[in-house]
């Protein structure tokens, strides 16, 4: 009798765990954020390659400020979809750090790719490198963030 009650209680706890894992899986940033980031990356590289240095500096500053204002609401990772807002306790506090770390990593990849393309004698290495990073960001942003969350247990 007691074993049956414990079994039922265990099943009920399993249901609770499953429901809460489903909500935790919703932590992330909207797909549009990643595509906007990819587009910004590409536009910056075009300006850097074709425009004057002052314009590239202004554009980079503007992009950074725009991202800060826009991402302040999104970086918590609690509003990936319009269907729910994940609680702060479930989302944790490390999502913004992971996203910023990921963006820095992508910037590093862009620089390395541009250097490699330049050494290979390619035309417009910065644009090709940015195109590569933009594709990674746009197509794989949510998946990369999911993997990083798993690695860091965030």
């Amino acid at each position: 009798m007691e074993e049956s009650a414990a079994e039922q209680a265990g099943d009920a706890l399993g249901l609770v765990d499953h429901a809460q894992r489903q909500v935790a899986a919703e932590v992330g940033l909207p797909r549009g954020y990643w595509w906007a980031m990819a587009a910004g990356w590409l536009v910056l590289s075009l300006i850097a390659q074709a425009g004057p240095a002052w314009l590239a500096a202004v554009a980079t500053l503007g992009f950074g400020m725009g991202h800060s204002a826009f991402a302040a609401r999104l970086l918590s990772g609690r509003r990936r979809t319009s269907g729910l807002q994940v609680s702060a306790a479930v989302a944790g506090r490390r999502i913004p750090l992971i996203v910023v770390g990921m963006l820095l990593g992508l910037a590093g990849i862009t620089v390395l790719a541009a250097l490699a393309l330049n050494a290979d004698g390619a035309d417009h290495p910065a644009i090709w490198a940015a195109l590569l990073t933009a594709a990674i960001t746009g197509f794989g942003g949510p998946e990369i963030l999911r993997v990083l969350r798993r690695w860091t247990r965030a």
């Binding site: 809460q20 319009s82 609680s87 479930v90």
Partner: peptide
Amino acid sequence: LSLVATLAAADWAEFA
């Protein structure tokens, strides 16, 4: 229980 557990992990959730 599933419904309440879902809502407990969220600030709010939409019907859909």
